[in-house]
Write a protein that binds this DNA or RNA. Structure first.
Lengths: 121, 121
DNA sequence: ACATATATATCGCCGCTCGATATATTGGCG
DNA sequence: CGCCAATATATCGAGCGGCGATATATATGT
């Protein structure tokens, strides 16, 4: 949002999906949609730039893999798929993002709840 | 955030504060800071444009009030304070924002929790 | 007297979002 | 076999919005 760290939900979502196991772009898009019953649309314009920046930050790693077509001799020009894996650093970041998210919802609940929180000196 | 309605927390905060009673800009800034133990900084650059847009949308109303200084004859050129009040429409919007926020946190928890939700056909 | 607090308000830079677009391969269906 | 939909990855830039910087005026405390 602003004001208080937007706690970047998109990043949180992608990192948490990758924390469950390696995946690739298209799959992540589908997983996000499935999990959210269609409400969360992780479009290419959002996803790929983010994966790139995550990799630049060293939070994930990537590697290409050849996809074997049914009746294709492996001539080396088949379709390729880019797998992403979360790094230890990425896991730490995910923990932070989760913490930030909890803090954020707690903060909002402060306002929703009405009364200010008790101060502990 | 994007992807799924940023659920505009700043607006939610201001509306919820006004739902507790009329207030004015400077006070809202202070309240926000107090409630959040200083983490939420509702700066002028954020607050005033927002109050304006909230009023344009008919979610809040405003009225000026003269502030009486200690030893001042009320000559009509004292300091003025602009009070804001939430409108019925604003209360409805607040409810919506709260609902959106709940939906948002529920969605994030879906990813944090791991397993996808059961589908109800 | 002067600094600080109260009080409201605007402007515009910067950065991010994400719709549009591009491209190539593979699978299914009539 | 021809064609469309699905699979798969990727870039670009217009447009929008957040918010730091800035402006202005009064009131209070020292």
């Amino acid at each position: 949002m602003a004001l208080f760290d937007k706690s970047d939900s998109a990043q949180l979502v992608v990192l948490s999906l990758l924390a469950e196991g390696a995946s690739y772009g298209y799959q992540l898009t589908k997983d996000a949609a499935t999990r959210s019953s269609g409400t969360l649309r992780l479009t290419p314009g959002v996803l790929y730039p983010m994966l790139k920046s995550l990799e630049t930050e060293g939070l994930i790693t990537s590697s290409w893999e050849e996809i074997k077509a049914q009746g294709s001799a492996e001539d080396g020009t088949g379709r390729r798929r880019k797998w992403y894996r979360i790094s230890p650093k990425g896991r730490k970041r995910l923990e932070q993002r989760i913490a930030a998210h909890r803090a954020y919802t707690a903060l909002i609940d402060t306002f929703l709840g009405g009364r200010p929180q008790e101060e502990r000196p």
